Structure formats: C-alpha cells, structure tokens
Amino acid sequence: MRITKFGHACVRIEHEGQVVVLDPGVFTEPEAVDGATAVLVTHLHPDHLHPDNLRATDAPVFTVGQVHDQLREDAPDVAERTTTVAVGAAFDVGLPVRAVGELHNIIHPELPQPYNSGYLVTVGDQTVYHPGDALALPEVPVDLLLCPASAPWLRSEMAVEFVRGVGAPRNLAIHDRIYSETGHQFLAMQMEQLAGPRGLEWVRRGDGEDL
C-alpha cells in the first residue's frame, strides 16, 4: 500500500494496481489523478470538487447525489462516468469501500449544510477512513484516519475528540490549507499531549509526500 498526501483534502491510495484518489479539489495538483482507476468525492465544496481535475483522468467518479447533480450542470462529460453512492452503501472501486455519514458539519446555522459521505476504504488488511468535511464515527476499527486539521467549522478540541473517538493508531492531517504553519504546530502539540498517551499517532505530510 502507498498513501500520498496531495493538496489540502486530497489523498491518493495505491494498492495492487488500483489507484483510488479522494477529493482532488481546487487546491490539489492535477498530477494527483495521474493513472487513477477511481475517484471518490465527499461533497460539492470546491476544495473537494474541481471539475478540471476530474477531467484530467478518465477514471470513474463515485460521489453523493448532490455532487452528481452539480456535475450534470458544470461538467456533463464527467457526469456521464459518475455513480451516485447511497448513504451507508458498500461498493467496489477496485478496492472495497463503504460510505459513512450523510451531512457536512455545520459551518453556520444560516449557511447550507451540504450532503457529505466519508469513505472507508479497505486496502489489503488495512482500513483507511476519509471523512470529508464531517466527523461521523465509522463504528468499525480504522487503521489510518485522514483527519481534517483546519476548517471554518473545526476547533482543535473537535479534531482531538474525533481522533480519540475513531481510535486509529495513525492519523494523517488533511484539510490543512486554513491554518498557518504555526497553527499546525499548535495542533500537533495538542495531539501529542491529548491523543499521544492513548497510542494515537498524529502525522502531517507536505503535498506530494508519502505517508
């Protein structure tokens, strides 16, 4: 298994000839989708959904109905190879996947709350969880959590409690364009203090770096 962190919320998983790319949004390098065999999109915000990046591959796209509808308007060529994933559905993209959760975390009560599905991806004997912009607990053991590290809807307390709640031994920081480097250092110190003693490792990688 090879895990590569790309810009902001995008992660690429390679395993036995399968290349699954999650959330290659507007802050993500187009090369993230090179050779992709499937792309998963959690929700319609542009930092997760960028039609130009989806056009940079001919891989099938799997996502929630709201994103599929948006693609029919903005990128009908991509919509033709897009499959809508039902809430809680199990499906196969070359690797087994299960959708988790239904809604984006609340940003503000007066702003829309989009649909959001996180994805549990089974990679050999490992389970990787990308929650998108939600903190839905998967209720199954997870080996690697791709945890949002900064967002308009996220306090550091929420990130710490999410890491504790999921209980994955390794936690890779994603969704990291919001904080400065100083902010990320503060979060890393809090994770070391509050999650580290429980055996929960917090790591951050630069864009294009492997875990």
Score class of each variant (00 low, 15 high):
residue 143 D to K: 13
residue 106 I to H: 02
residue 107 I to T: 13
residue 167 G to Y: 04
residue 102 E to F: 12
residue 161 E to V: 12
residue 161 E to S: 14
residue 109 P to L: 14
residue 143 D to A: 10
residue 112 P to L: 09
residue 117 S to V: 00
residue 166 V to N: 10
residue 107 I to G: 02
residue 102 E to R: 06
residue 117 S to A: 05
residue 141 P to I: 02
residue 116 N to Y: 07
residue 149 A to C: 14
residue 133 D to E: 09
residue 115 Y to M: 01
residue 157 E to N: 07
residue 125 D to G: 06
residue 131 P to D: 05
residue 124 G to P: 13
residue 106 I to V: 15
residue 169 P to A: 07
residue 113 Q to N: 11
residue 116 N to C: 09
residue 119 Y to N: 04
residue 110 E to N: 14
residue 114 P to L: 06
residue 113 Q to V: 15
residue 134 A to P: 11
residue 160 V to A: 00
residue 119 Y to M: 11
residue 114 P to V: 08
residue 100 V to G: 05
residue 102 E to H: 10
residue 127 T to H: 00
residue 137 L to A: 04
residue 106 I to D: 08
residue 127 T to D: 01
residue 161 E to L: 13
residue 138 P to E: 00
residue 102 E to M: 07
residue 163 V to C: 08
residue 172 L to C: 08
residue 167 G to C: 11
residue 172 L to E: 14
residue 121 V to L: 00
residue 107 I to S: 07
residue 106 I to T: 15
residue 103 L to Q: 11
residue 124 G to I: 08
residue 114 P to D: 14
residue 126 Q to V: 10
residue 129 Y to P: 09
residue 120 L to G: 01
residue 136 A to F: 14
residue 173 A to L: 08
residue 115 Y to F: 06
residue 169 P to M: 07
residue 118 G to F: 09
residue 111 L to R: 10
residue 129 Y to W: 03
residue 128 V to R: 07
residue 135 L to K: 01
residue 102 E to W: 12
residue 149 A to K: 10
residue 118 G to I: 07
residue 162 F to W: 15
residue 148 P to E: 05
residue 156 S to E: 15
residue 103 L to T: 14
residue 124 G to Q: 11
residue 131 P to Q: 01
residue 122 T to W: 03
residue 108 H to I: 02
residue 113 Q to G: 08
residue 120 L to T: 04
residue 158 M to Q: 15
residue 150 S to I: 05
residue 141 P to F: 09
residue 171 N to V: 13
residue 139 E to G: 03
residue 129 Y to Q: 03
residue 101 G to D: 11
residue 167 G to M: 07
residue 150 S to R: 13
residue 130 H to W: 05
residue 129 Y to C: 04
residue 168 A to I: 03
residue 165 G to L: 14
residue 173 A to W: 11
residue 135 L to V: 06
residue 99 A to E: 01
residue 132 G to R: 00
residue 137 L to S: 02
residue 131 P to S: 00
residue 123 V to P: 00
residue 157 E to G: 05
residue 104 H to Y: 09
residue 112 P to K: 04
residue 145 L to C: 12
residue 157 E to I: 06
residue 138 P to G: 01
residue 144 L to N: 00
residue 168 A to W: 14
